[in-house]
Simulated scan of single mutants.
Amino acid sequence: MLLASFFGLVMGLVLGLTGAGGGILAVPALVLGLGLTMTQAAPVALFAVGSAAAIGAVDGLRHGLVRYRAALLIALLGAVFAPVGIYFAHQLPEKILKVLFSLLMIMVAWRMLRPEKLDDGPSDHGHANWGQKNCMLDQQTGRFSWTAKCTATLAALGAVTGVVSGLLGVGGGFLIVPAFKQLTDVQMRGIVATSLMVISLISVIGVIGAFHAGVRIDGLGGSFIVASIVGMILGRKLCARVPARGLQIGFASICVVVAAYMLFRALA
């Protein structure tokens, strides 16, 4: 029980600091640290990630940082496609799921360690030029200009996020945050807050789907979930004081080590 609480606290802390990534640590903690199978771990991880993310999303809403229309669109498509991921999670062998998850962690670590090129323009945080962003904020209203291109982009992001969250039990922040940086001109604080709202909404759908499939959460899972909420609250309070690059390098290093161990266990 104590170990479950510790793992949950760390996961919530990372999620609160980054707006992404915490969920990808939840499944390895439950599988390697607490001995759950991938299908057992997925709903616990989603419940923990979703609950913790909801705390951060409410905080972001209070400060006017959440792009709630974009978040609702992404979450809606995520809800539609999450059952597809859940279906395949119950069809695939445990070994294959562990290998997929390990490869996913390596991809996330690589993205975090890769130096980011900054381009000239008001957004200054993506690879696309100022005029090439798929979703642009209206300079007068501060809201998205809802063009067909912008709507299609966010819908596609929601579909992919839904499938991955259902399949591997992750909230999808590791997809949403870099995608928003690449495809929109939203500033980083808004990206993190919007990501947390999407994660919380998609996670709820994933948990409901898993419960419908017969998966239940025991006392260990409950301790993990409660601790993750506490970690999220602490992370949101500390996020302004922690150097972003140092956090990225540290988190990416943990991802590589955990992924290598999961891969070794899966293929042994």
Rank of each mutant, 00 (worst) to 15 (best):
F6T: 15
F211H: 08
G214A: 03
T141V: 10
V49S: 02
I233S: 10
A252S: 07
M38C: 01
G33L: 04
F101K: 11
G173F: 06
L238N: 01
S223K: 02
L220Y: 11
F251V: 13
G131C: 08
S253P: 00
L137A: 03
A75K: 04
G16S: 04
D124T: 12
W146L: 12
G85W: 14
P243M: 07
L238G: 07
V80I: 15
R265T: 15
A227L: 02
F144W: 11
A4M: 09
G209W: 13
F251E: 01
F174L: 01
S195R: 01
L36E: 11
Q140R: 12
H125G: 15
V31D: 03
T39I: 13
A210K: 15
L3S: 14
S5D: 03
L183H: 05
L183N: 09
G131N: 14
M136K: 11
P115I: 01
I217K: 05
L15P: 08
A54T: 01
F224T: 10
V256S: 01
S123V: 08
L220H: 10
C150M: 05
E94C: 08
R265M: 14
V10R: 01
L9Y: 02
H90I: 07
L220E: 08
V186P: 14
G35L: 11
L13E: 05
L97H: 04
I229G: 07
L104P: 05
P115A: 03
A82G: 06
L220D: 09
S5L: 15
A244P: 06
V256G: 01
A52L: 06
S195M: 05
S228W: 00
Y68H: 12
G60F: 00
G78K: 13
G60R: 01
L97M: 11
L168P: 00
Q248Y: 11
R241Y: 13
G162D: 04
G250F: 12
G214E: 14
Y261T: 12
F47E: 03
L118G: 04
A48F: 05
D218I: 09
V186T: 12
Y87S: 09
V14L: 10
I74P: 02
V198F: 11
L72P: 00
V31Q: 09
H125M: 15
L97Q: 07
Y261I: 12
A240I: 05
L220F: 15
L9P: 12
P28S: 08
M188T: 06
G21N: 06
F7E: 04
I199S: 04
G64M: 14
V163D: 01
L104T: 09
A4L: 07
G23L: 11
A45P: 03
R241F: 12
H212N: 11
S123D: 15
P83V: 06
V186H: 02
K181T: 08
A259C: 06
K95E: 14
Q91R: 12
G33T: 09
P93Q: 03
M1T: 14
G50P: 11
M105H: 13
H127V: 14
I96S: 15
L263H: 06
A227R: 03
V215Y: 13
I24Q: 10
I208T: 12
A20D: 06
